[in-house]
């Protein structure tokens, strides 16, 4: 498997560690979230047949966390973004 790193170009999946659903970026604020909201964040994942946004970590590379959009049907990698940029675009900051 190849992941086309936005800064480094195509890299072998052997350099990466996968975490799973990119919804893990959307962590609720623990001071204001209900237990149910925090529970859903921690435990619930979609399992789509089709495009899936996943978190991959370039552990044996530049230590970037990436959001990889991958089709679970064809295994095609459709899009790769720096997770930090995705997080910022989703309004995460400090």
């Amino acid at each position: 498997m190849i992941i086309d790193h936005p800064l480094l170009g195509p890299r072998d999946a052997a350099e990466f560690v996968v975490l799973g659903d990119a919804s893990l970026i959307d962590r609720p604020d623990g001071m204001t979230a209900t237990v149910e909201e925090m529970h859903d964040y921690a435990y619930l994942r979609d399992n789509p047949a089709g495009d899936h946004r996943e978190l991959w970590y370039h552990e044996q590379g530049d230590r970037s966390w990436l959001v990889v959009t991958r089709s679970t049907l064809t295994h095609e990698v459709i899009k790769v973004e720096l997770a930090r940029n995705v997080a910022r675009a989703q309004g995460r900051s400090r």
Partner: peptide, 13 residues
């Protein structure tokens, strides 16, 4: 790995 996750994905700024 988890610290990098927190730094890049949860609190990027």
């Amino acid at each position: 790995r988890n610290l990098e996750f927190a730094r890049q994905c949860l609190w990027p700024d």
